[in-house]
Design a protein around this nucleic acid. Structure first.
Lengths: 348, 348
DNA sequence: CTGAAAGCGCTTACAG
DNA sequence: CTGAAAGCGCTTACAG
């Protein structure tokens, strides 16, 4: 690894009280016998620097153990190479996979990112954006559909943002996701086609995306002449255990409920465990459908029918869209629908 | 929200080609009729500024919509208020909870953090540290026990680091975790005391912590005169489905195996599903113990015995230790053992 | 408690 | 393709 050589005071006299000992672009320039500007160019736009100079600069960088100071670069260029990323929750596997997609795209593009957790609250999101502004992010990846005035107001400029998970209303706003409404609708259609007659809906964590899934589910039931009001919704955060609680509750309220759509796979898993505990056969006495296709859905006993969502891709494509925008490239489509898939398994 | 006022050219003439339009500390100083230095002090060490001046500065900040430029601060002070955090995996719920602990401590302390995923590889960790150095982090929170020369070499200075999850060998090295070895040993003792005679070990993702758990487990078995070699280890990443595969494999190799210690709860869940699929009664025909106490362990059918690990606290305490070190506070204990707990449930 | 000067390490905007 | 000058917005290190 690059070892920082102790710089002899003859080549680099310590300035009065400010010496950091850090190897700078000036040190590299001196070693390579070019100007600091040429070193800067060799690092940012190598094509524009003569091969010979580039070689000397590379050698000097290696010899001195130079690495760039991002703060200086940010200050001088007003570009931080940092993206602010705000997701609703970090304890939900769904968003973690989205972060993986974001990281994979941003890493190869040379960007870092700051991660914030909004707890599904717009106010918290606004506050985090505000905090992040000190770090002068070049852009934001957000999870809410709402607009943030602060993005327009800050730094005299509009900071570009891409919204993830749901699709923006206007085609100008950049967004990457899929139709939550259609996904909920598809689950309703599936359960009806399988012959279930009293499908219910279980949910926790009242966030806008969940409400859209519910809306689609209800629409599917209503259209087919079924009762859309068999449901239990809780505002508290989702846990596996809550799936068990919700199942108990819906059976108390609707003893003849014969199928449930859980708004995520954690609830579905808890509901399945509760059925096992009570000796309720799945799917013959109770069908269970989940959402997201987390790792256990496919290998549970019985395996769980669920909606496969493009979580990783949402992060990857959203990051890509943002960077294209930052580079001033033309955006073919600002609103990217990645779709979803229904994985039909044993539980329905 | 703070709206950036358009600055009339009479008060702030645009410099030749560099005007950013950003409100700076100089603008605030002018508005508050103090020097920029006093504004800086009012923000960093308010106690040292006269109340009256502070009030005028607050008003000016509000009026102009000022927020600090972290890049300028970092460049001038050589302190970035950023911590580099490296965890083995972002798709493992364990580390996510650790990140929550880190975030909760760092947020109130006014620090941001960059998150990197090492994929359980030291080389990747070294590379990420190297990348992060450009952002001049004030410290690192690491997951490996190994030393990184690059931390000593960089920036002419030693950058402080706290190691998480396992305990450092020396009492000088800062580390926060618990004894993986003792945890594995405790599970072995528990299974033996319950009367199981052929306990086996299932693992994936060969990382050093897992190997220490295994070492403790084998020690417990050997001491009691049991065969420690009933085990299946795979180098590939952990998934729920792999728990099912590993269970099949260990039963092929050791048909009389009557209990398994899975190196994490994901494997335990997969093993439980596989038992259900094959009609193997848990725990009467096969006992299952996991590790970490993830959300489903307590509510599975049957509920799963597991080792409760202090994941959130590891993150919180590690961040606290690092910040104390950065502030030059005296460190009472550099090696913090947070312990663990065995949650005995129905599966054993 | 307050301020003028200098500097942190880069990049912009020219000029050649 | 290359370089000298100036500036990004803060904080350090003095000096009062």
């Amino acid at each position: 690894m690059p070892r920082q050589p102790s710089v002899p005071s003859t080549t680099k006299p310590a300035r009065a009280g400010r010496a950091t000992g850090r190897v700078t672009i000036v040190d590299v320039a001196r070693e390579a016998q070019v100007s600091p500007m040429t070193v800067s160019r060799a690092l940012k736009t190598p094509a524009v620097v003569q091969q010979q100079a580039r070689d000397r600069i590379s050698a000097a960088i290696k010899k001195l153990g130079y690495f760039p100071n991002q703060a200086a670069s940010t200050l001088a260029s007003a570009r931080s190479q940092v993206i602010g990323v705000l997701v609703p929750s970090l304890t939900n596997a769904v968003f973690i996979e989205t972060l993986s997609g974001i990281r994979d795209y941003l890493a190869q593009a040379g960007y870092q990112f700051l991660i914030g957790e909004t707890g599904y609250a717009k106010a918290k999101e606004t506050q985090l954006i505000s905090t992040y502004l000190a770090h002068a992010p070049d852009g934001f990846l957000l999870s809410s559909v709402e607009q943030h005035d602060i993005l327009r107001a800050a730094a005299g400029d509009h900071i570009p943002a891409v919204r993830m998970f749901d699709l923006g209303k206007s085609k100008q706003d950049m967004s990457v996701g899929f139709s939550q409404l259609k996904a909920g609708y598809a689950v309703a259609r599936h359960l009806i086609e399988r012959g279930y007659r009293k499908p219910g809906f279980l949910a926790a964590q009242m966030d806008p995306r969940m409400l859209k899934r519910r809306e689609g589910f209800r629409k599917g039931l209503s259209e087919a002449g079924f009762d859309p009001d068999i449901e239990v919704l809780l505002p508290t955060p989702t846990t596996v255990d809550m799936g068990a609680q919700l199942l108990r509750r819906i059976l108390e309220l609707n003893p003849d409920c014969d199928a449930i759509f859980c708004c995520n796979d954690d609830l579905a898993l808890g509901a399945l465990f509760e059925c096992q505990r009570r000796g309720i056969q799945v799917p013959s006495q109770m069908a269970i459908a989940g959402f997201n296709d987390l790792s256990w859905a496919a290998c549970a006993t019985p395996s769980i029918t669920t909606v496969v969502t493009p979580r990783y891709d949402i992060g990857f494509q959203a990051a890509k869209l943002l960077i294209q925008q930052l580079k001033g490239e033309t955006i073919a489509k600002a609103r990217i629908d990645l779709g979803f898939e229904l994985a039909v398994r044993e539980s329905t």
